[in-house]
Design a binder for these strands. Structure first.
Lengths: 205, 205
DNA sequence: ACCTGATTCAAACGGACGTTTGATTAATAT
DNA sequence: ATATTAATCAAACGTCCGTTTGAATCAGGT
């Protein structure tokens, strides 16, 4: 493993544990068995290293499993939407306690410049695919804004098990963990699908 | 306003903007119009000041509006559940950009010892009340675990506009802000209520 | 063997930080 | 008015940090 890779891995751990400000290049280089100057030599500075770590982290957050898309089965949008939700929940719960998960949670709470690229490069495609699936399942009857609201609702139901993890663990047990991924995702799927029944029907005042 | 109070207020702003590590006592004292040594004189050190700021922030997070409870109208659980959701969304979106909101979000991402007290003292009552409302609306037909799942789902849909704010703002506009609180909460309410229709009916395989 | 460029290293630089110090001023009691 | 305590202040201390420097080491080509 090259010095560069070693630093990248060590930086993921250190930044994951202490954040960008709290993590020191000295700690990173120590863990990587490299000299203090290595960070500035292989990356421009600490900030650039952090940006690269973020990209690397999000790219590897998927744990290999590819995202289910509408294009995979254009004639079965409901099935694909369910698969997408299950994939997303599994992905979130799986990375909950890892450095990757903590890096993401921290970026949300305290955005740095790196979040801009992350949003446009890595998150936007995922969000867009969910929108496409939602649109297909609804049969194109929903307005753009309504679709966006429902996408955020689904993502919120998934994300809460990740971002709210620290709080859920402190409320009265039993809480939900990565072993409940199937139960959680099937509940969200059930709820989401039901919201499409009689979507355009406004029940009385 | 005494020097002590001035520092407390300034510290809330500074810690809210830059976090505990990022916020400096020099910045705090400058904004409070006090000397650099004032923090160490009136509080023991920076950490003690932060703990006191957190307590103060959590206590003032409610912004006055009282939480709707089942006890307020035991015969109209559905109405109260809707009121609860609207109240919660308003509360979250209203404190989204404030120092209090940022302090809370940061505690979720990087819990300190102060989070334990927060969970038991401030969050648990809110969560329990939602569970009571859910149980009442369902007519007592749902298991404990199912109720808890639905509570988390509702909270997730609300929370995402708070915790995911930084990301939502970076996705393709228009995003949702505090001016859309009514639209958001009514959407969540609609979705939640629909999930109670035919709750016990399992549609085919 | 020699040159050339890339990489590693120990050491130091300059700045920012939390905290301490000791003197000075304000407030309070006798 | 005097003594005592609380509060404020400018200045400095020691430490840790990101970054730079310039020499040393390694690799590959000629």
């Amino acid at each position: 493993m090259s010095t560069r890779e070693g630093i990248l891995n060590a930086a993921m751990s250190v930044f994951g544990e202490h954040g960008f400000r709290g993590g020191t290049v000295r700690d990173i280089c120590d863990r990587a068995g490299a000299n203090v100057a290595a960070v500035n030599y292989h990356f421009h500075d600490k900030a650039s290293l952090y940006a690269e770590v973020l990209q690397h982290a999000y790219r590897n957050a998927g744990s290999g499993e590819p995202m289910p898309t509408l294009a995979d089965a254009p004639d079965q949008p409901a099935t694909q939407l369910g698969a997408w939700i299950a994939w997303y929940v599994r992905r979130l719960l799986h990375s909950g306690g890892t450095d990757v998960g903590r890096l993401m949670a921290r970026e949300m709470a305290e955005p740095t410049d790196a979040l801009d690229d992350l949003a446009k490069g890595a998150v936007q495609p995922v969000f867009s695919e969910l929108g496409r699936l939602m649109d297909a399942v609804s049969g194109g009857t929903l307005e753009d804004r309504e679709i966006k609201l429902r996408c955020i609702a689904v993502i919120g139901q998934c994300l809460v098990f990740h971002t709210g993890r620290a709080m859920l663990e402190r409320l009265d047990p039993p809480h939900f963990g990565s072993e409940d991924a199937d139960e959680i995702s099937s509940s969200i799927i059930q709820w989401t699908m039901r919201s499409f029944d009689s979507s355009n029907v406004d029940s009385g005042p």
